[in-house]
Design a protein around this nucleic acid. Sequence first.
RNA 1: GCCCCCAUCGUCUAGAGGCCUAGGAUGCAGGAUUCUCAGUCCUGAUACACGGGUUCGAAUCCCGUUGGGGGUACCA
Length: 538
Amino acid sequence: MPQGTFVLVSSLERMSLMTVPVRTRFAPSPTGYMHIGGMRTALFAWLWARHMGGTFILRIDDTDQERNVEAALDPIFRAFEWLGLTWDEGPKVGGPFEPYYQSKRTPLYQAAVDKLLASGKAFKDFDPPEVIADDRKQAEAAKRTYVNVRRSLELTDAERQQLEANERPFVVRFLIPRDQKIAIDDAVRGHVEWDCSLMPDPVIMRSNGSFLYNFATVVDDGQMQITHIIRAEEHLANTPVQALIHLALENPMPVFAHIPFITAPGSTKKLSKRDVEKLRTSPQLKKMFERADEVFPQIGVGDSKTLNPVMVEYYERLGYLPAGILNALSRLGWSLDGTTEFMSLAEVVQNFTLERIVKAPAGFDPEKLQSFQQHWMNQLSIEEKIDGCLPYLTKAKLIPADVDHAVRSTVGRVIGAVADRLRIFSDILDYKEFFIADDAMPFDEKPFQQRLRDATEAVGLLKSIREQLAVIEPYDAPTLDKLVHDFVESQGIKIGQIVHALRVAVTGKSVGIGLFDALAILGRDSSLRRVERALNRV
RNA sequence: GCCCCCAUCGUCUAGAGGCCUAGGAUGCAGGAUUCUCAGUCCUGAUACACGGGUUCGAAUCCCGUUGGGGGUACCA
């Protein structure tokens, strides 16, 4: 370190001295949707608060929003509520530092600016934007790092008064102590240091009197007594300025923890909503978009254009489990150890530490998410699965809105037979054949052709087995199983010769649940009608 | 350009000098089970970016290179 300079602050020391309860926050903008990456950032902040028995705060960053903030906020609250990430202070619940909307906190920012101005740690800059732009251009031409020229600081008191009397527009700049260095001890990245001589004095108040994010956030974090600023890595570069402002405001220095962002699958770039159209064709996400286009229209929530995999609501609407999403998000950039994959939220809370956050960006992997989801879905009881699936069937009008005992029982039998083929609740829509009228059931053309038309013996076999299906008692899966096997033996055929044809005949598809379960669930009458219908169609 | 961050299988990660001929998961390939699909169970392939040090010994520490990313606003 050059002589005459010194490091201003080390938050690591403060961290060890810290005895105050942990307070973390998440400060979303009302964008109209909750970003999956933002959710992960929020989760980490939430986890740290919960792990430490502290407080988690939601603060709305609506400085540049005009109208309709409430509507744009709704999906955000919805996402937190769906995942069960409760906030202790913020919108809806209030708290000791109200209001929790930045747009309503301007008096606080004004007071802070006044304080800085009074102590000479900020100054009014009367240079018009064109002059500043010119300075920048010159620095660029000279291959010099640009720092603003402090002309307004050279003004005499009389000149300054003159300008103010003339109502000359000005911005307020925070005065960077250029002879110093600023360092932080980031809880995940370690010691990071910047040379203040390279830093321009940041504008903290615009000429129209509004405040900049970099300033407002510091004022808020200070006033709300945030102890740990857990946020995405892209804010690391903002940190020296913010730390300096904290110092100038005489706030206790919070601990910073910059977590890596989530990258798009197959990319090293941040997962962002702006690139959704590119993501649509990415091999990893293609299926997810297709699934949306398949399911959402059926349940009346648009398609993949209204809801896509960067939005939390996509997962909710498709019937993912909070446990699956939470588990996946927790493991993105954090691990408990080398082997533990499946963790409930409670287990993560118990074990979560900042220290084990990975420094490198993490790629979002839908397939890994799928495996977490599958695990948690398999933990559910049949009754829970029924409750999860029912809304999809009613919205798709496959069952009546008022679900009676009989319907619920049928759904239960289907789900039982579907077993672990059910990964997300909307998967139940892949088994429509059990909920539609016999004469409305569609046949997949390819298997119909292959198994019924092209297989020369299929029609004869189907006719024979139909006779037996008509009289077999009882009409349940084990009995049907035995029936078919006996049939196969007596006919001297392979089981595949009858099973495939029968499956296509009664379900219209080549794949699905076990054939005998399917027959039993459909019942004798439906089974016979469907076989009949298939035979007539050949 | 300048500042800052990052770098282990395709992906998520374990690894804080010898336990590493690098472990787990996911995905992939093959096999078994089976009426299809899914699942399950075996088996397999795949990684320490590169170059210099330091050390008896380096994925681990240091330096450099390369690559990737972020920032550089009267955006957030």
